[in-house]
Write a protein that binds this DNA or RNA. Structure first.
Length: 428
RNA sequence: GUGGCCUUAGCUCAACGGCAGAGCAUCGGAAUGUGGAUCCGAAGGUUAUGGGUUCGAAACCCAUAGGCCACCCCA
């Protein structure tokens, strides 16, 4: 009914929700520091080619979900809003010659991503991710470290029952042979495949493995397993990742059908998964190793691994377990006045307190005192500073709204008194 | 991109072919210098939008938009 609404698939984060997101961002920032990742920013959009090359032209993300920006002129380059952060981070890594920094370079980005998808609960066209990338270390230990950091995020955020699923999808040495085998297997059963699956057989046979079609279950179960086809190096890498996970006490499950939709993954693939009550957006986050991406985007061959965690879905999961909503700190005090017309005194006193670093809400509307105090209660202010005739002698009333007591305080002492009261308030 | 369900005040919902309502929230009054309770009042609507059927449509039909659900895919 309002003439303008937030575009489809986007939503306004009202203060209550924004506070929850801030809390998650704070946890992400804290973990980044503890694990040695450095926060950075990349543009919300890139040349389309960064995503086409970096993610893969045949992927759904690029093929149908890319948020393309209409070019301003015929010959201007084509841009798209970022559907994920990895490609942009790697582009920046190459552009700024970060291979000259001590390896691995550990980078992290928190912010909105965009996919032109059909919206659903927990799936938006603008959504928020915490993305972390460790670029320049080929070893399995860093894989486990990344996974452990992701897992700890859910623990500290308070999301229960998050499972860690791990798999290896091989590398250039062994995956091609496996794909041939897999393709041959499904081709032999082509007549049993539902229509949409037939198309994927050609385009992306790996994805047949995690089909949710019940008709596929038996077929998938009997399909050749990548774990049986890994080359020696990949197999050793996987078992070492698992050993490191055990060493840091991260419970995990090897999921042979776990594959990733994006082209650049190799070897380690993992997912953070939660069996939700209703809405089926169960993938809370995922990631993997992408040893070929840096080279693909113009850098020298550099191994890398990272993850992307969906913050909207964490927020949803927290709602589901009825975690208490995050409340923003209410103002310490409200500045009210006996004379509704005297906004000058109220603004002056409020300004004075704010200069001392105190958080106060000034009641500046010309409402009578009772209404001003009513607002103070609704805003959960701890104190009210009441300005009246006593100001002539340099005094104001300081009222403790929870105790219901009040006393006369010289204006000169007000900031100090309030700060002291706030302190004892927080400790009591 | 495919299919299904839904849409009435800021929010949660009534009215089910016959005068569009309630609770909560908002604003004001009771109470002109003292708050969360109570009472009274006001404001808030082209019933998502556009068409159709009907003496009469919030209700029935069609289209569009948005939300949700299942796919596709993913965070």
């Amino acid at each position: 009914m309002p003439p303008y609404r937030a575009p489809r698939g986007t939503r306004d984060l009202l203060p209550e929700t924004r506070a929850g997101l801030s809390r998650l961002e704070e946890i992400a920032r804290s973990l980044s520091i503890r694990y040695g990742y450095r926060l950075m920013e990349i543009p919300l959009f890139e040349q389309t080619a960064v995503f086409e090359r970096g993610i893969g032209e045949a992927t759904d993300v690029v093929e149908k979900e890319l948020f393309r920006i209409a070019p301003r002129t015929e010959d201007s380059e084509s841009w798209a809003l970022r559907p994920e952060a990895t490609a942009g981070i790697v582009r920046a890594f190459v552009q700024h010659g970060m291979h000259t920094r001590p390896q691995p370079v550990k980078l992290t980005v928190v912010g909105p991503m965009f996919r032109y998808d059909r919206p659903q609960a927990g799936r938006y066209r603008q959504f928020y991710q915490w993305d972390a990338e460790a670029i320049g270390d080929p070893g399995p230990a860093v894989d486990a470290e990344v996974i452990e950091m992701g897992r700890r995020f859910y623990v500290e955020a308070g999301v229960p029952d998050v499972q860690v699923l791990v798999n290896s999808i091989g590398d250039s040495a062994c995956r091609p042979a496996y794909l041939v085998k897999l393709k041959a297997y499904f081709a032999a059963h082509a007549t049993e495949l539902p229509e949409p699956e037939q198309r994927r057989l050609e385009l992306n046979p790996l994805r047949l493995l995690d089909s949710k079609d019940p008709a596929m279950a038996a077929l998938v179960a009997a399909a050749p397993k990548i774990s049986d086809c890994l080359c020696e190096a990949c197999a050793a890498h996987l078992s070492s990742v698992l050993a490191h996970l055990d060493a840091v006490g991260v419970p995990h499950r090897v999921e042979p059908t776990l594959v990733r939709g994006l082209d650049y993954y190799a070897r380690t693939a993992f997912e953070f998964y939660r069996q939700g009550a209703e809405g089926q957006q169960q993938a809370l986050g995922g990631g993997g190793r992408y040893d070929g991406l840096v080279e693909l985007l113009g850098g020298r061959p550099t191994p890398a691994i990272g993850f992307a965690l969906g913050l909207d879905r964490v927020l949803l999961a927290l709602e589901e377990v009825a975690a208490e909503a995050v409340v923003e700190a209410p103002p310490l005090a409200i500045v009210a006045g006996a004379d509704p017309a005297d906004t000058v005194s109220r603004l002056r006193v409020a300004s004075l307190l704010r200069a001392e670093g105190l958080s106060v809400r000034a009641e500046l509307s010309a409402r009578k005192l009772g209404r001003q105090l009513e607002t103070a209660s609704k805003e959960h202010a701890h104190f009210a500073v009441i300005i009246g005739d006593e100001l002539a002698e340099g005094n104001v009333q300081l009222k403790d709204l929870e105790a219901g007591t009040q006393r006369l305080v010289p204006l000169a002492d007000l900031a100090r008194e309030l700060a002291r009261a706030a302190k004892s308030h927080h400790h009591g």
